[in-house]
């Protein structure tokens, strides 16, 4: 149960970055992901460790960038959900 929730949350985080054109400010991500600041930071650190998002410094602070690995994760997850929805499971 916990793992399922986590995968869905990770999907939502990456999807939020993708929907913003692959670059998002931490404050926007916090708002879109609907998580606590602490929880979002933990997951962002984990995703950065896995190479799915990267951090970029800009004049106004920092931005999170969706990497190729992040794009692949989203694509893979989307395919799986689409396949399984065909069966209604």
């Amino acid at each position: 149960m916990e793992r399922r929730d986590k995968v869905k949350i990770i999907y939502d985080i990456l999807k939020s970055v993708q929907e913003k054109g692959g670059r998002i400010k931490p404050t926007h991500l916090l708002y879109k992901s609907n998580l606590s600041y602490k929880r979002m930071n933990e997951l962002v650190q984990e995703l950065m460790g896995k190479g799915m998002i990267a951090e970029e410094s800009v004049s106004s602070g920092k931005m999170y960038i969706l990497t190729d690995k992040g794009h692949k994760f989203l694509n893979e997850y989307h395919k799986m959900v689409e396949f399984i929805k065909g069966f209604g499971f």
Partner: peptide
Amino acid sequence: IYRFIGQKKYLFF
């Protein structure tokens, strides 16, 4: 799918 998402229903599938 089961390994990726981790829900038992996909294992059953």
